[in-house]
């Protein structure tokens, strides 16, 4: 059943009627199903595959006030060669930085195939005027960012002003597509929409925000900024994966999912992959449609990879600090 959603966003009432017409999420059931899927045991060759896939899905992220060009360059070097001692380790999917450091990252990653993502729109709070948010986005896109991670206005969402959120997303989407200043990047940037699920309070709201972001044209929906706890929990990721699965069935467009924040161990990363496979299907098991927003998990993935390759336990002394 391919439905047209053309009229859904015609007014706040229509949008509200549609979003509140979505089936509710059974909180207990969602928690239990996510926990149950987390008990799968993935070992030996399957684990080796999963570790490599997880490394290819990592968005290596640094979003600190204290970020320096040097730190960004070091992170880019790690993104291309996560383990300098082992050339068989795949590259990560992207690095994620603040807009003013995009140029540094683009320079350091030129020709490597690793994408540059930038947060924008008054990250992480999203509390600014639309003009500022659009300007922020253009700054990043013109510097050469391949992907823009925007935050939604949670205040507007929670107060029921869905049209404002919708229009902001469409405006940012337009800003992503239009600029295309950098050579080779004329097609513009992918848009990831950060829902900040830690502030949305309920799974119903997560489902509504997911649909809202997808209707407005987001290419990815992302759980969190990483600045708010709880961040990417398994049930929340599962609700978002259900949303992209249903959206594909309804419209034929595949939207990606990016859990971000709180994923620290290989075990967590593999649980996420199990969740993707079981909820959305193996079509999503690609870096084009699923990302892991985390940086500390990369070292654990590398340590596990080395343990499997050498048969001895690895130590953190032999991997970079970040």
């Amino acid at each position: 059943m391919t439905t047209s959603f053309a009229d859904v966003a015609s007014s706040n009432v229509a949008l509200r009627t549609f979003l509140h017409g979505l089936p509710g999420v059974d909180r207990v059931g969602a928690d239990q199903r996510a926990a149950m899927l987390g008990t799968r045991s993935v070992k030996t060759t399957a684990k080796a595959e999963a570790i490599d896939l997880a490394i290819r899905m990592v968005d290596l992220t640094t979003l600190e006030g204290a970020d320096t060009p040097g730190k960004v360059r070091a992170m880019c070097a790690k993104a291309v060669h996560p383990d300098p001692a082992d050339p068989a380790v795949p590259k990560v999917a992207a690095v994620c930085v603040y807009p003013d450091l995009v140029a540094q990252a683009v320079g350091a990653l030129a020709g490597s195939g690793v994408k540059v993502a930038s947060v924008a729109t008054a990250f992480p709070s999203g509390r600014s005027s639309l003009d500022v948010k659009v300007a922020d986005t253009r700054l990043a896109v013109e510097a050469g960012a391949d992907e823009i991670d925007m935050v939604i206005d949670r205040g507007a969402f929670l107060s029921g002003d869905y049209v404002k959120v919708f229009e902001e997303i469409t405006a940012i989407k337009e800003a992503c597509g239009r600029a295309g200043g950098a050579p080779g990047k004329e097609h513009g940037a992918h848009l990831k929409v950060i829902l900040e699920t830690g502030e949305l309070a309920t799974y119903d709201n997560v489902r509504r925000a997911s649909w809202l972001a997808m209707l407005a044209g987001g290419d990815f929906i992302k759980t969190s900024t990483g600045k708010v706890q709880p961040a990417a929990t398994f049930p929340v990721t599962m609700v978002m994966l259900e949303a992209v699965r249903d959206f594909l069935a309804a419209t034929g467009r595949a939207v990606g999912v990016k859990p971000a924040g709180g994923i620290r161990t290989t075990k967590d990363a593999i649980k996420m992959l199990v969740l993707v496979n079981e909820v959305a299907g193996d079509g999503w098991l690609t870096p084009d449609l699923f990302r892991l927003g985390a940086s500390s998990v990369l070292n654990d993935l590398l340590m596990q990879r080395q343990k499997m390759a050498t048969g001895r336990y690895a130590g953190p002394d032999y991997f970079t600090l970040d």
Partner: peptide
């Protein structure tokens, strides 16, 4: 042997 090979020991 596991302790002897452990890189964090």
């Amino acid at each position: 042997p596991w302790l002897a090979g452990h890189m964090d020991v």
